[in-house]
Design a protein around this nucleic acid. Structure first.
Lengths: 196, 196, 196, 196
DNA sequence: TATGAATGAGCATTCATTCAT
DNA sequence: CATGAATGAATGCTCATTCAT
């Protein structure tokens, strides 16, 4: 009998093998040839597992983001202080630890802006919902205020969009190194306003 | 001297001639051939005026954004009510009138996220500063509050980033049609918080 | 011995399973993948039974033509009237009943014209002899004329070639729908000439 | 100013440069690479002048057939005897002088049978009409018979199809060397019948 | 200055064939 | 005997770029 391969697993392993390539090369000049020789597979095999280049970028983004999501969820649960949780949450946008992931996130966002597929949009939505869920939970912790409860959902969604907007603005203007500072300013500012 | 001006003008006229093309075609499948035949010039001439395709997209974005900026500045000056001014300002992100411009803006933002040039980043910064200047002016109108004056600069920058974040989130998740609603919610929400 | 028979049978059953595929797909874009997945066998198995794609087309043509030959022979024997027999015989070239078979016949003829194998030529010859045999028999029926007997062999061969030529001319000029009319004209015309 | 090229002439010259290649190579294994390197042009240039491989084969066939048609028309006009004219006309199908042209004709006919384009069918029709015109003229020469005049058109068309059918039958059965003999038999046979 | 014919490296993609299981 | 994952050479085709005019 023939070899039976777990197509899903193989797809993931190929995508993962291309991690550095996708992150470090200019995606527009990244060819299938480079991908397959880097991944150590034949050109034909690539098309057994992927539709095209975007498909691989998508798979990789989904994979690494999922991994990040799982890890971050654990980290958040291990963190006690509310402010620490918020900082941990926001650190995605500036911590050097996540530089590679951000690179991928940027590429993925760029594709989503210009030529999105339904699947991509769904994944973006998934992430958005997941993160706003986290944030809502963080915001409501140790707070009985019925007022906050009423707006927590909306508030968390806005906060995420705002932070994302700050991040993208910084990156697009060439001020990636100022993301942390800007986000902190924003949080501090909002917090103060919130109090009042 | 006159020749230099002519070169600049020709560059602009070529870019403008390609407006619909750049906006309606998938930018990744837009070739120099299509551009030159659409613009009614020879292939060789393209390289007299542009470095490459991105350069043309950039020129076009700069041109149309500048045009928009000028027009919007006039419109704002003609608007009396503060809230109307804010709405007018935000309408860039959802008014069907600006659909084409947003398409270009998205493409331009995507390039800025993935493979930005110094010039692009500078232009992004220019726009950011211009808009935050406008917003600051609007916010300070008819307000003597020294508190507001102290934070107006920072506040306006944040607001812009936030609105941009909401816009990009909506587009990336495939909810472009909900931008207006989300921005309104955000403004209303912020306004209420502001009051308190 | 039994195994050999099985091999032949399997070869035939694979070919038959691809009948619609070969007839409906453009033969130049018909891949082994499509064939094997359509036939429900593994790619490796294809090469157990066939040399290449042409081999399968050939097998199929031989199979269906043989089937047709057998059936037609029976039909002819069941037909009484001489003219009806001739019409029945000619109907291969225009009756909608044989559309699929003609499609295959065209493909087979095309290969025979451009890159024929000995086997194909032999099969073409076989068919030609078979049909001219039928025709001769039909022509001689109820005719004692020694003149006709002398030329019947030659005459039948010519008639077949002529009808085939009319058919191919119509198909190649895009007038497949006029085959019946043209053949009838020809037969009528020849018949008249014959009488005189 | 740029070089202005007669696209039609260049297209023809490229096609002609590939004459031997198209005639001698198996058309299915003839690649664009082979064509362009043989014609001494770049790969890109090929696509400036041709849609695809079939387009080149078509151009070549049209070119050489036109050339043949012109020459044959002259030759026919220079021939006095009616029978010589007929022989000259039929010689296309067996004279070694036309071997190359027949090879191309076969390939062209094969394409017409399997995947014809409107243009190809039109060209086939054009040739068919031209040849039947010739033949009609030949048949009517020195004949006042009103009977013949009445059927000359139909007769000439049938004769051409018949001769074509004989040719294709011989080629397909691997008896290309017997075309002359078979056609002569047919002509002689028809002639005799005609007389009576 | 303007042109557009020519280019050929490079692209994504296909597919007949193999061979370990 | 059957399989189907893996292959990579080969394909058709594109397109940014050049350069003779």
């Amino acid at each position: 009998m023939a070899i039976v391969v777990d197509k899903v697993k193989k797809r993931q392993s190929i995508a993962l093998a291309c991690k550095e390539l996708v992150i470090n090369e200019d995606i527009r000049s990244l060819s299938i040839s480079k991908i397959t020789s880097h991944a150590g597979i034949g050109k034909g095999s690539f098309y057994e597992y992927f539709e095209n280049k975007d498909d691989l970028v998508f798979e990789l983004a989904r994979l690494l983001m999922s991994e990040y999501n799982t890890l971050m969820e654990i980290k958040l649960s291990e963190t006690q202080d509310k402010l620490d949780k918020l900082k941990l949450f926001a650190s995605f946008f500036y911590d050097s630890k996540y530089r590679d992931l951000r690179k991928l996130y940027n590429e993925f966002t760029a594709i989503s802006l210009v030529s999105p597929s339904k699947e991509m949009q769904e994944f973006q939505m998934e992430c958005f919902n997941l993160y706003s869920g986290w944030l809502e939970k963080i915001l409501l912790e140790d707070e009985d205020s019925p007022e906050l409860q009423a707006i927590s959902k909306q508030l968390s969604k806005m906060l995420i969009s705002s932070v994302k907007g700050i991040y993208i603005t910084c990156v697009a203007t060439g001020n990636s190194d100022r993301v942390e500072q800007e986000i902190n300013s924003f949080v501090e500012f909002s917090y103060r306003g919130d109090k009042k």
